[in-house]
Each structure stands twice: as C-alpha cells, then as structure tokens.
Amino acid sequence: MATTATALHERLTLQIPFPSSRLATIAAQVLDVDKDLKPEVSRRIISTQDNILTLDFQTSTLKLLRTVVNSSMEMVQMVVNTMGSFDTEHE
C-alpha cells in the first residue's frame, strides 16, 4: 500500500524566556521526553539558546496547530510551576 506524504503547511514558533539558561535547558529536556505521535501530520522542535526556550510547531492543519500549541503550553506551565516549587539552586 502506498503512503502519501502530508505537507506541514501551518507553522508557529514560540520563544519563552527563562530566568537562566540552566532552567531553559531543564525545561527543554523535560518537554522533549514526549515525542510526536504522528510526525507526518504534526512536528514539534524544541531548542534553547541562552535563557530562551524555543518551540517550533509544524502541522498539516490550522486546527491541529491550535491543539498542539495549547497542549504544549499546558506542559510548559506545569514545568514552570514545578520549577518554582522545587528549584532551590540560584545562579
């Protein structure tokens, strides 16, 4: 059976500043544990530069983009809240 490639037409990049590069890296590592379930219709690329966490989303539809971004932002909020409660190291 032949498969057809789905173009990832919709794209959004979010840059989220953290108080330090250490916290941005920890957030990226935590968020990167969850891999894309269907990379042919949705892709999330996570990276950091200094204290900036970058989330680059690519999806096949605008509706899917909204869903993926919303879910990812809920995860980011959970990570930030957890860091606020448990991080005791200050730079």
Rank of each mutant, 00 (worst) to 15 (best):
A2P: 10
T4F: 12
T6D: 02
H9A: 10
E10S: 09
E10V: 04
T13L: 09
I16Q: 03
F18Q: 01
P19N: 10
S20R: 01
S20G: 05
S21I: 00
L23S: 00
A27G: 09
A27E: 05
A28S: 08
A28D: 03
V30K: 08
V30I: 15
L31E: 02
L31H: 05
L31K: 05
L31Q: 05
D32L: 10
K35R: 15
D36E: 10
K38N: 10
K38F: 14
P39T: 14
E40S: 10
E40W: 09
R44I: 15
I46R: 08
T48P: 10
D50M: 05
N51M: 09
I52K: 06
I52C: 07
L53M: 11
L53K: 10
L55Q: 01
D56L: 07
D56R: 12
F57H: 07
Q58N: 06
T59V: 08
S60A: 08
L64Q: 07
L65D: 00
L65F: 03
T67Q: 01
V68D: 03
V69H: 04
N70D: 14
S71C: 10
S72V: 01
S72F: 02
M73I: 06
E74T: 08
V79C: 13
V80C: 09
N81A: 15
T82P: 06
M83F: 15
M83A: 13
M83K: 04
G84K: 15
S85C: 08
F86M: 13
F86R: 07
T88F: 11
E89D: 12
E89G: 00
H90E: 07
